[in-house]
């Protein structure tokens, strides 16, 4: 049995310990916000937080989460209140295709949790493991700076009202 907390909810699973955390969360726990991109930890689309640190879950065995806190994009906002980084992403109209954005946002929130005012080099260092093929990097940089300088922004969304 593997036990961990997923978005602050206890989870207990009968699963092979070497199954990658990404796929366990997507297929067994039905949270599909975290994406598959490369399977080698090279693109960051699968980024989640493990005890607050950004990790590439396509190569992380689920056993590594034993007894720990896992946070996905779905657990980032608190109730209907968006995380300030998500709000900054909206304000800068960052997403294009949107596929890499959950991973980008998880890397950005992990950065800002440890460094409230990152400079350009620190943003580059924290974000260069996340590929965006649509080319949203200039906006990601702006959104991170905006989130860093913003007070807690309040915005609401209804998770039931998801697109298509």
């Amino acid at each position: 049995m593997i036990k961990f907390w997923l978005n602050q909810q206890p989870v207990e699973l009968d699963v092979s310990p070497d199954a990658p955390l990404l796929w366990v969360v997507r297929e067994m726990l039905q949270l599909t916000g975290s994406k598959f991109g490369c399977g080698m930890g090279l693109c960051g689309a699968c980024t989640m937080h493990l005890d607050g640190a950004a990790v590439r879950t396509c190569v992380l065995p689920v056993s590594a989460a034993q007894g720990r806190q896992v946070t996905t994009i779905e657990g980032l906002s608190s109730g209907q209140q968006l995380h300030p980084v998500q709000q900054a992403w909206l304000d800068e109209n960052v997403p294009q295709c949107g596929y890499c954005q959950p991973g980008q946002i998880m890397s950005a929130t992990a950065l800002l949790a440890n460094n409230t005012k990152p400079n350009d080099q620190e943003i580059d260092a924290a974000m260069q493991g996340n590929i965006c093929r649509c080319g949203t990097y200039p906006r990601i940089k702006r959104a991170i700076k905006r989130a860093a300088s913003s007070q807690q922004t309040v915005s609401f969304y209804d998770p039931e009202q998801e697109q298509s």
């Binding site: 599909t32 916000g33 779905e74 909206l90 997403p95 949107g98 959950p102 998770p159 998801e162 697109q163």
Partner: peptide, 14 residues
């Protein structure tokens, strides 16, 4: 603001 942006920053875009 793009009408698909909210879904894409909350992981709900399908």
């Amino acid at each position: 603001q793009r009408n698909d942006a909210l879904a894409k920053v909350t992981g709900t875009a399908r």
